[in-house]
Write a protein that binds this DNA or RNA. Structure first.
Length: 772
RNA sequence: GGGCUCAUAGUCCAGGUCGGUUAUGACGUCGCCCUUACACGGCGAAGAUCCGGGGUUCAAAUCCCCGUGGGCCCA
């Protein structure tokens, strides 16, 4: 009998053909019905080359979610989008063309950004397609499209009218390299070397002085008070006294506050506007009047007196010299200080009072907590990330950014009285280049307006992704059918941003939660467990890996190596060796392809045994698939296919399947069982490795795609795991015995079959050529 | 300083809820073998103080406590 499959190994080249076929047959097309399964797919951000291999693994798994849902009979809506707003592309464009954003005409700069995005996007789309992602690429969306930005602006206008947005002058995190305010969520902390300066402050009307340690002596001009811990006995006698600030000679009060740590520095702390977040909190709590010491240009202001115009770092050096020459310096220490830096530009942020727009969020925290409780997290432990974040929210969300490549804030100001005017929702507005659609100021009737130049924080765009894909405000019928979405898959590091902001915005706009499930994946690390980054040079380009080894190998690696929710290491060699399993599956199928597919047969003990193990495998896979944890089925299927089915059952049933010294009925039992097992394995594996399973399925079992099949269900057969152990141990014993006697595997040998294995005697005898 | 999480062979990882034979599997290494699905293979072998200390128990990789060291998050 000739096998239908003749090639000896799975050829990843075949994936292209299969891909074309899927495209031609449109097998993943979505038409909304009653019971839809909507995936709020993360739109990836094209920030540079290469795309992160961890992201490729991430999207492979998101596709497994879609395929799992489809095979469980759900009508899957799997949109694809690309996130294109924000700072990274501006920095990329500045670097690529060696220009500066603020020195380039805005329209021209935007065009350059758009071109860069198009390039990077093309590569990401190519990778996603090649990975076999079964999403809707024909209608893929961009967050910088007119349609998307219209939604962002419309939702803003809605919230503006509801009084959820306000303008406030507050200390803000300012990244003066990118020239913009940033949200708390965009700050990271880095341990940086700095000097801790011990300064002498005189107590007024005495000869005494106290020592104050600070890492920011240049802010001395903005010092408003000195605090000590109320339990610090060194300072009890000075509480309430005036202290003279060196250099500026300003008098400030010494008071107590629990946030002063006795063991840090001298225990006395100067409170300036603004050295850190604690200063901000203290100014608010003690109702101190702020002094703006650092300007938007990143330089010291007039308030800094003789240091005006210097950068804070220069001012620091100079003031240390001056303190020393004027006798105010006690000592300085080199320390490592946890410094807040901008996540994007990696530069220490300054806290500067600025006027920005805020979206109210504090009063929503309680509601969001409740929604969070209702959402099922996969894995459950990552709900904690959201809850911890909700605990720490203490200010509203600053949503305006002084950048170019983002959705414009749709506001015009009356040139005469400065009254802000917001246009009607439903259109995309560019106030920096367009005329105000409102003809007269509703306050002073003036007809001249100035357009707002700022853009939104990008999370304002991405936080409405579930609304965009469900056509919120555009197609009510469609919206009602697909919203709320079923699942939000995303990475762990953006729980406090993307996940949280989406909850906030969707709750504000619809009063509902945006999805019932959240699926959180860990980070892709390099082979040593370090975070991958372009600057470290440890990034792996996924494209050549996928091209060389094929999508299925990559996908199976992703499923079998990444325990859901935990960080994972990416190692090319590991990915390569995963291929062996596909090879095994191929060859098992090749062997089976020499036998006809038959509907039934008389089962013997071996057949019943492997089918019971198979049933157990189905249950195990279901456990994983129900939780969208692909690690469980991947490991279980590999173990079963390789180490039980191929290594033991096929060997036991081989002679019988060929019909050598067996009756036709006995033969059919073997052939039936072999096919039943393989077809089940293929279906169980289909969400993980869609290409090879499709190919084998079509050759062996049906002209209809495996991705149109329903997943197999357990028949609740009792497991015979003790028998499995005895069989594998007995087979090993025979192989070992032959080896120690220098016999070939086909040579005959005399070995006693254990009592429990008597029902398998005929198969075992033919397998090992056992003598009576 | 607080939270989450991890620690098991050269490497990755299972087991841990619910304590109980010889600690799972893969990669890699070594040896033998072309046995009509597969040399991208088969069989076999070597390789683990289950991070340290203490406690509970007849019995701890597993439960509890105290440390140590990584990763991430927050302040």
């Amino acid at each position: 009998m000739d096998p239908k499959i003749s090639e000896k190994a799975w050829n990843p080249e075949l994936e292209k053909e299969i891909l074309n076929q899927w495209q031609k047959e449109k097998i993943y097309e979505f038409t909304p019905q009653e019971d839809n399964f909507t995936i709020d797919t993360p739109p990836p951000y094209p920030s540079g080359r290469p795309w992160h291999i961890g992201a490729a693994a991430h999207y492979s798994q998101i596709d497994m979610i879609a395929r799992t849902a489809r095979m469980s009979g759900k009508n899957v809506y799997f949109p694809i989008g690309i996130d294109r707003n924000g700072l990274p592309v501006e920095l990329y464009t500045e670097k690529k063309h060696r220009i500066r954003m603020r020195e380039t005409e805005r329209g021209e700069f935007l065009n350059l950004c758009r071109d860069a995005l198009d390039d990077l996007e093309a590569e990401m789309i190519l990778i996603m397609k090649n990975l076999g992602i079964s999403g809707d690429f024909t209608n893929y969306y961009r967050t910088d499209s007119e349609e998307y930005r219209t939604l962002t602006q419309s939702t803003f206008i809605d919230l503006w009218k509801k009084g959820q947005v306000y303008l406030a002058n507050r200390p803000n995190n300012y990244d003066w390299v990118s020239g913009t305010t940033i949200a708390d969520a965009e700050i990271i902390y880095e341990d940086l070397p700095t000097k801790l300066v011990y300064m002498k402050f005189k107590i007024k009307d005495t000869e005494k002085e106290i020592i104050i340690a600070s890492t920011r002596p240049e802010l001395i001009c903005a010092c408003k008070t000195i605090i000590v811990n109320p339990e610090d006995e060194r300072y009890t006698q000075y509480i309430g006294k005036k202290v003279i600030v060196p250099i500026t000679n300003v008098e400030v009060e010494l008071r107590t506050h629990h946030s002063a740590k006795q063991e840090f520095g001298s225990g006395a702390v100067m409170v300036c506007s603004y050295g850190d977040q604690n200063d901000v909190a203290l100014f608010r709590e003690l109702e101190l009047e702020e002094i703006v010491a650092i300007g938007l240009d990143g330089r010291m202001t007039e308030a800094a007196g003789e240091y005006a115009g210097l950068k804070p770092k220069q001012a620091r050096t100079k003031i240390i010299e001056d303190l020393e020459s004027r006798g105010f310096l006690e000592k300085k220490e080199d320390i490592i200080h946890r410094t807040p830096v901008s996540e994007r530009s990696k530069i220490p942020i300054e806290i500067i009072p600025m006027e920005e727009y805020y979206l109210k969020q504090k009063e929503s925290v309680k509601k969001i907590k409740k929604l969070g409780q209702e959402i099922t997290f996969h894995p459950a432990m990552h709900k904690q990330i959201l809850m911890n974040w909700l605990e720490s929210i203490n200010i509203d969300w600053p949503i305006s950014r002084r950048r170019f490549y983002g959705t414009e804030i749709p506001i015009w100001y009356c040139k005469n009285c400065s009254e802000p005017h917001v246009p009607e929702p439903g259109k995309y507005y560019k106030p920096w280049s367009e005329k105000c659609p409102i003809t007269n100021c509703n306050k002073c009737d003036s007809s001249e307006f100035i357009g707002e130049e700022r853009t939104f924080d990008t999370w304002m765009d991405s936080s409405v992704s579930p609304l965009f894909v469900s056509k919120f405000g555009k197609d009510d019928k469609f919206f009602n059918m697909v919203y709320p979405a079923s699942i939000r898959p995303q990475a762990k590091d953006i729980v406090r941003t993307w996940l949280y902001y989406t909850l906030l915005r969707c709750e504000q706009l619809t009063g509902e939660k945006p999805w019932s499930d959240a699926w959180i994946m860990g980070y892709g690390l390099d082979e040593k467990g370090m975070k991958m980054s372009k600057s470290k040079g440890n990034a792996i380009d996924p494209l050549p890996v996928i091209e060389k080894l094929g999508a299925d190998t990559f996908r199976f690696w992703s499923a079998s190596e990444i325990n859901h929710g935990y960080d994972f290491r990416c190692n090319e060699q590991k990915i390569e060796s995963t291929r062996k399993f596909l090879s095994k599956l191929w060859n098992v199928s090749r062997f089976l392809s020499s036998f006809p597919v038959i509907k039934s047969g008389t089962l013997n003990a071996s057949d019943k045994w492997i089918l019971s193990e198979l049933d157990n495998l189905i249950k195990e896979c279901k456990k994983g698939y129900d939780d969208y944890n692909f690690f469980i089925p991947a490991i279980a299927i590999r173990e079963f296919t390789w180490n039980i089915f191929a290594a033991h059952y096929i060997e036991m049933a081989k002679a019988r399947a060929y019909g050598i010294e067996f009756s036709d009925e006995e033969r059919d039992g073997a052939i039936f069982t072999l096919h039943k097992t393989l077809s089940t394995i293929l279906k169980l594996l289909a969400p993980i490795t869609p290409f090879i399973t499709e190919y084998l399925w079509k050759i062996l079992y049906s002209s209809e795609s495996i991705h149109k099949q329903r997943q197999v269900e357990s028949e609740n057969v009792e497991v015979q795991s003790n028998i499995t152990k005895e069989i594998t141990e007995f087979n090993s014993k025979v192989w070992n015995e032959k080896k120690s006697q220098n016999l070939s595997l086909k040579d005959s040998i005399k070995i006693e079959i254990p009592e429990n294995l008597k029902p398998f005697i005929k198969d075992l005898k033919s397998m090992h050529n056992l003598l009576d």
